[in-house]
Amino acid sequence: MSVEAREARQPWILLAPAISAVTLLLLVPLIFIVVYSFWLRTATGADQVGFYLDNWQEALTDRFYRDILFSTLRIAAITTVVCALMGYPAAYFIARSRGNKVILLLLLMLPFWISYIIRTMSWINILGVSGALNTLLMSVGIIGEPINMLYNETTVILGLVHFLLPFMVLNVFVSLDGIDTNLEDAANSLGATKWQSFIQVTLPLSLPGLAAGGLLCFVLGAGTYITPLVLGGPRDAMFANLVFEAIITQLNWPLGSALSLMLLVVLGALVMIYNRYLGMAQLMKGLG
């Protein structure tokens, strides 16, 4: 074999294990559940192989699934907006601070490393009947009896915001940090107020980071089932909870396949739209 041919083959040898892993453990399984979603669950024994539209009919027409899909998207949207409102000023503060930016950023990213389940359950310590807030309010005398603040949609959103905020801050920071501050100075020297130069120069330039952070918050938020299980009430199930119920509790795998694919299509469409207009590069900047 010539040197060139060997040289050309080398990268493929290096890539082969990773590509086969992703193909066999992700791509083929995804195609498989498309097929599986047309099978039928039988009351006893193995699932009926064939081409049945029953699962899709149930998943797409049952009001119950549709309502939960919409409320999932609503919860994810609220979470994303709250993350943006909380995270943008914080990212701006870090990017423009005269102190040690890296330390400030690392400090805010620290909770990102702390276990998701611990961070989620930690809110029970704060908001529970004998939690920090109730104890505080009672000792000050504002309330006589502990109030039940937990297990509703608001606490689910709270938990999600706490989980996802670092993603938002990191992405906005990466974007803000890359903006040449001379641009702002130029706007100011041309007579713009600080506020004007922020609105007309800095904010538009940081929008890609905001969009990347927003996409991550939305997609990760809409795909969770742990937070609603820990911090939500019985009526706060999100779409991923339905998937979990179908697969793990009811063992209705064909229906679970259809529901998973529905979630994939809805969230995948968002990623596609994002990719179409902004490209994946921005997202990778924030992740890497």
Partner: peptide, 15 residues
């Protein structure tokens, strides 16, 4: 990481 983890989990388990 572009596929929601729940979907990845279901696909891998079933396959």
């Amino acid at each position: 990481i572009l596929v929601p983890e729940v979907v990845l989990a279901v696909a891998l388990l079933l396959f």
